[in-house]
Amino acid sequence: MLKGAGLVRAVSNSIAKKSYMAKKILIVEDDAVLQKVLTEYLTSEGFEISSALDGETGLQMSKTINPDLILLDIILPKKDGYEVLKEVKSDSKTKDIPIILLTNLDSISDVEKALELGATTYLVKADYKLEEVASKIKEILEK
């Protein structure tokens, strides 16, 4: 029973790996545990992950590695998520990269500000499962 389930999972993972093999995701997150969990989960879903622990590094990496999508926290050292979002969106080289804000700030004013600045969507970490985060990423990349 367990083995069977494992096999199904392995097969579905390999399918996922195939279709998302080329997609690069940049995770800008200062919480080491969340960074690690997201990286492991998304890697196993077939994405290529790069990560930054502060806003400034995240911004630089958005230019150098040219990711297909950025997962961005708001409260970050050196440069906060809003600033990173603003700068990514104002640079003609990076402005088309979809950005998902992934944060625990959940007031409507934060959501509105992020969407106004050009974020593709806004997810509250405590309310979303990893599976839902991954399917949101896939949904955006498939568009």
Binding site: D31, V33, L34, V37, Y41, A126, K129, E131
Partner: peptide, 17 residues
Amino acid sequence: KTPISEMRWEMELLKSK
């Protein structure tokens, strides 16, 4: 909220992968 997110995601990672 942050430690709760950590715990929930770690558990999900363990269960799913």
